[in-house]
Amino acid sequence: MMDINQVEKSDHTLPNSLIKDKTPLFEVNHLSLTFRQYKKGLRESSTQVIRDFSLKIHQGEIVAVVGASGSGKSLLADAILGILPENADVKGDLKFAGEELTMEKQMLLRGKDISLIPQSTNALDPLMKAGKQVQSVIKRKNKKSIQERIFHKVGLSKKAGEMYPFELSGGMARRVLVSTAMVSEAKLVIADEPTPGLDEHARNETIHYIKQLADGGKSIMFITHDITAALEVADKVAVFYAGETVEIANIDDFTGKGENLRHPYTRALWNALPQNDFIPLKGSQPLPGETINGCAFESRCPIAVEYCAQKPPQNKSVSGGIVRCFHA
């Protein structure tokens, strides 16, 4: 509570500095995440889940983070919000509005400047009416009328505000979660897998709300394994494989047989879609903790050569995108 003044101060200085030098609102450089675990007795082991993740998000931009399940995508959100368990070691630079995002800063900003649309609708408080939950985020007066206006915008009735989460359908609960992000003062919204399992109508709606958030000036990090959904809303797509960003591509690169894509994994992902060629690439991605000396994708890569297994490729800029591959 005592830190509210500080937050408000940073609110006022933010937009100007952004317009001046186009600093990305949010920036991650070489983020890595390791979990320390006890195996047998007191023997400690560590498992690296995220190896090298870099990403920039500008104001009003939607950047999708696309990757397989188990690639550590959701942990990424937790790392940014600073809500990882104690046995997690995070290394690398996080910057928010040009300033370093330290642990103290994370605590201050989460739920205020940075907000999360969680993966599961279980995240709603089961004992609080939906409307009240949304109101609790609003810092201004007239909480109730603001909440009702937002509910109207996302297609929820006044009655829905008086309902408890168990009385809401999956789609309605999803809309309540999105309203929470909409009424908040957040500048960065992290949406963690908001679409899978929804029918076509609800899915299109959710995507539409995310677009609305961005049109309102918020920056969005859209975490998903659904590349089709990502392509519908995002400005850029960051492809995540075995704890690394292997490519940051523009939306227009996803066309044809993927000739414009820079990384073989992105190309394989694109060509595996049922509406494309439905080609199953063999193998599975390395498990967290597996030692990888060279490129993480080498074992499955159709164009790998000997040195791919020996040293890791570095990020490089190729035709308006970023790629981590020797062959690009």
Binding site: G67, A68, S69, P196, G197, H225, I227, A268, L269, W270, A272, L273, P274, F278, I279, P280, L281, K282, S284
Partner: peptide
């Protein structure tokens, strides 16, 4: 295969 990525989905269905 709703919760799986496109490559795994294609693998499993094949």
């Amino acid at each position: 295969t709703t919760m799986l990525d496109a490559i795994t989905q294609a693998q499993i269905w094949h």
